[in-house]
Design a protein around this nucleic acid. Sequence first.
DNA 1: CTGTTAGCGCCTTCAG
DNA 2: CTGAAGGCGCTAACAG
Lengths: 320, 320
Amino acid sequence: MAGIKDVARAAGVGIGTVSRVLNSSGYVSEEARHKVQAAVQELNYSPNFRAQSLKRQHSGVVGLFVPTIHHPFFSKVAQELENMLDRSGYKMMLVCSQDSVEKEKSVIHLLAQNRMDGAIFITHHQHNDIMPSYPIVTLDRHLGKGIPCITSDNYESTYRAVELLAERGCRRIGYIGGKPSVHSEVEKRVAAYRDAMKKLGFAERCLYEEIRHGEEAVFAEKYFARFPDADGIFASGDVLAHCICREAQGRGIAVPQQLKVIAYDGIIGTWIQRPSITSIRQDIHKLSEAIVVELLKKIRGEPFEEKVVVPTLFVEGETV
Amino acid sequence: MAGIKDVARAAGVGIGTVSRVLNSSGYVSEEARHKVQAAVQELNYSPNFRAQSLKRQHSGVVGLFVPTIHHPFFSKVAQELENMLDRSGYKMMLVCSQDSVEKEKSVIHLLAQNRMDGAIFITHHQHNDIMPSYPIVTLDRHLGKGIPCITSDNYESTYRAVELLAERGCRRIGYIGGKPSVHSEVEKRVAAYRDAMKKLGFAERCLYEEIRHGEEAVFAEKYFARFPDADGIFASGDVLAHCICREAQGRGIAVPQQLKVIAYDGIIGTWIQRPSITSIRQDIHKLSEAIVVELLKKIRGEPFEEKVVVPTLFVEGETV
DNA sequence: CTGTTAGCGCCTTCAG
DNA sequence: CTGAAGGCGCTAACAG
């Protein structure tokens, strides 16, 4: 494995010159430049990243912390983020915290050890030991003052979705969603539902409890057991909406004739292309863009936004 | 940010002793050990990973290269791999090559630059510049001699699936699947289909062309346009199977009465928990385990298996 | 058992 | 414009 010294020797110059050519910094004569480039080719040399990062004090790596990557929403976000980061010259380290608090907490060690230059947080737990100075940005979660939070306009979108269900004739409108165990923008969905129901003068049919990824089907069953007469449901997520539709089908409830469903997220539709579940689609492209923009500002020590709200898009499907 | 020197000074010992305590290597007196531990606590010190990895010549990072992470199969694989790697003390760098050959090729640079200790390859393109000595392992893809390939028993499973469709009364059995642009174990699925059809004496109804992720729905439409009379379909992947079912529904074809469907992969079922599509489930846990085991052997320079075949599991659903 | 020393491979002043 | 030298923070070998 060739090092910079080998290149210098082969080119008949000093290592300083080689470094200058490689980083196009400082003054180098045309002749020296060519000799160096030839030697680099010759030896098939590429600079050792470990040494570079020790010297430069940054590694060009950003950590992404998600509860699980095997999920339509998180995997879509990861996909977008990886692309954006790549374009900004960063690599992405993926950590699936799998609801393990310990693994989530490792973000602090990883940052302290300089294994990453910054981190993006999409998690479920509370963290009180995150200092505002850490280069961290979150999606939906409030980790504290000084930690930027990027989110969709949860409240407005949900409010309008509930109104829409009412306009389409629903009177027994329900809400199903997981309750975050940490202060999160997602709470605004249930708040909007409740406000809208109050405004409409309807009785709530709300199932809002902590659940784990993978338990959506059971949760949907539970919903029908508790509120068998719902004629419209707002589901806080694609998977839940999917399970609700399946469960309805199993119970012989026709969608959308007897039961209308609107989902938040609207991501699964991007696989099967013909979106079937009417949904409020989060603009994951814009969300990811904002996340990366604010994170890079934070890493560079520039002023940043504490909160960015991205509009959603209403996608007409076949369940309303 | 405290360094090892600060700790040494605070503990009143030399940096060598600190290093020995931290790495529990060599002999250290109890007294010195305690003093160092106290100083570490005091200064909230953690060793700089960049310096460690320069010195140790490895970074504890493994790259995972997938076409896209927003996909039920790949995201499930990534999930399992991240867990296994974590348990082995490795972090996972995710690269979504998005069908971009350039991004896939970057594996070689990243390896040469020592940004990763090894790589896992799940990709679509041909690569002739991969040396057998590179610490790379693939899922399904043959990259050449010396590069371990982990895969399911594609041939056997597919053969049995086609036989099953025949047993259940299908006579016009079809195959739909993307054609890999690189020599891959996935080719054995279509080979098994063809052999089984020959054995059964049935005419083929096979759509086997290169497709990109995201185009599955269009591909399914194309299938029905070409073979509208199929009464049994083997789909090489969950998303395709899903699209086939939707398309059938749109055309008023009853599943499973008029059309039976079996999918390879069987991963989507793990979200909605009640698996609805009958499928040949790949044992992603075992696949991932084998991948990590062989990769670590390769990284450590130990002897390894060139090929590992993992059995699949038949999952009875509602489409047969 | 312990402190000191010599690099790991590179970047960056600093004289020349 | 260029080469030599110092140091990023840590580990491992060495002499005590």
